[in-house]
Simulated scan of single mutants.
Amino acid sequence: MADTKLDVREIPPAERHPKIHAAFEGLESGETLTILNDHDPKPLFYEMQAEVAAFDAENYAVERRSPTEFVATFPKR
């Protein structure tokens, strides 16, 4: 299984979700998108859970490494 990494901290906020969605769509089933973000991506989790059937919400994980560094994994079914 492949793991695609995307650091969105330097991307303007309005452009982050479209880039994340595009990267996720490019994954094959069983692959994972890992994002590095400057805040907890909980709103993105809810968005993906509601709108993206291929998102494996049960295996989503997020790790807070510092107050401004969060690593989240978005697995694809």
Rank of each mutant, 00 (worst) to 15 (best):
R77M: 13
Q49A: 15
G26W: 01
P41T: 02
E51G: 14
R9D: 04
K19D: 02
V62L: 02
R65M: 10
H21F: 13
K19V: 07
P67T: 05
L36C: 01
D7F: 11
E25T: 14
E51Q: 14
I11C: 00
L36H: 03
D40A: 08
R77V: 15
D38I: 00
E31Q: 15
P75T: 13
L27H: 05
E31D: 13
P67K: 04
P43Y: 09
P12W: 07
N37D: 12
M48Q: 02
N37C: 00
L6K: 08
S66K: 03
Y46K: 11
L6H: 07
I11A: 00
E51P: 08
G30N: 12
A2R: 11
E69D: 03
P67R: 04
E10R: 08
E15I: 00
H17S: 09
T34V: 14
L27Y: 11
L36P: 00
V8T: 01
S66G: 01
I11M: 06
D7M: 11
M48W: 09
F74Q: 01
A50G: 14
A23E: 06
F74I: 12
I20Q: 06
A72G: 01
D40N: 14
E58P: 09
K76F: 09
F70E: 00
A61E: 13
N37Y: 02
E10D: 12
P13K: 09
A57R: 11
R65S: 03
Y60K: 04
D7R: 07
Y60P: 00
A61C: 08
F70Q: 04
F70Y: 13
H39E: 00
A54H: 15
E25W: 03
E25M: 13
E51N: 15
M1P: 11
M1Q: 15
E15V: 02
T4H: 08
D3W: 06
L36Y: 05
A50Q: 15
A23I: 06
H21I: 13
E31K: 05
P43A: 10
E58Q: 11
V62F: 05
A57V: 14
L6F: 12
V8A: 01
N59P: 08
V62M: 05
